[in-house]
Design a protein around this nucleic acid. Structure first.
Lengths: 142, 142
DNA sequence: CTTAATCGTATCCACAATGGTTACGCATGA
DNA sequence: TCATGCGTAACCATTGTGGATACGATTAAG
């Protein structure tokens, strides 16, 4: 397995919720669009609910709704909400401190990795859930 | 486990090879600096050898050497050599094509993911193995 | 008050990626 | 001839991930 698909699934679901603004969607319905299990959806949206991004209503007639204007939700916000880690990872074992490279390499790489990740996030920040919704709607219109 | 540590280990090893330019290092010695197993080092450097980045010499007195000037090796080059995948991953199951979001979301996200990855790589392209070596040497001098 | 629908969450499982380890053949230089 | 070291296959333990079942709690409807 490579990287988590949660980010992509989250964007998919949030776009779906934006499309159905004002109408709560059940985890079962959402799972049907994503093609996964309702529990997977509830787990994912549970994380976003804790951060106030979506709200849920249990019981009959319940379901999930966006709790934030989709234009206020950037892809970077979602990525950070999901606690997606750095695309980089240091050694699994601490390198040998007796080696000048081993002793310093992590300290040297760390800011470079940070900057690279920030560059990536800057691009993600430029797109919102509303942008995604508009793209979907644009396609529908054709 | 999160993401592969191979990229970091590769940068570590290449910097070490740059530091020992002109002198071949054995996989056992290198493993001692990285704090891992020699086979792990040989596996990793084997990949880089196929791309002409390092060279190896079997037998007594053999080992590994840089085959390219460290100033010509950017971190992006190494990342691409290792075939490190995108930091993003699409759904594990194909989303429901009957849903307007499910039908289009991957096509919409794809170029955004590409641009974000390219932004990350642009930063990596600005640093070379020689830069890392200089940083290590700078520390040593203090 | 009863019932159906739905979330919240624990638990278990299968699968794949990763890195560590052993083993052994082959190449090389002394 | 022998020690050294690469090349590579094979196996394993660990971990992350997503799928699945189950069941209690909550809510609206009637």
């Amino acid at each position: 397995m490579n990287v988590s698909t949660r980010f992509t699934v989250a964007l998919h679901v949030l776009t779906l919720l934006a499309l159905s603004a004002g109408k709560a969607l059940t985890s079962e319905y959402i799972a049907g669009s994503v093609n996964t299990n309702p529990v997977v959806v509830r787990r994912l949206l549970g994380t976003l609910r804790k951060l106030g991004i979506v709200s849920s209503q249990p019981g009959n007639g319940g379901g999930w709704e966006l709790a934030v204007a989709p234009g206020k939700l950037s892809l970077r916000d979602i990525r950070q909400a999901l606690n997606e880690g750095s695309p980089f990872s240091m050694h699994s074992q601490t390198p040998n401190p007796k080696c000048p490279v081993g002793k310093n390499i992590q300290r040297i790489l760390s800011p470079i990795y940070d900057e690279a990740e920030q560059a990536m996030e800057a691009r993600l920040a430029r797109t919102t859930i509303l942008s995604l919704l508009r793209s979907v709607q644009e396609t529908q219109r054709k």
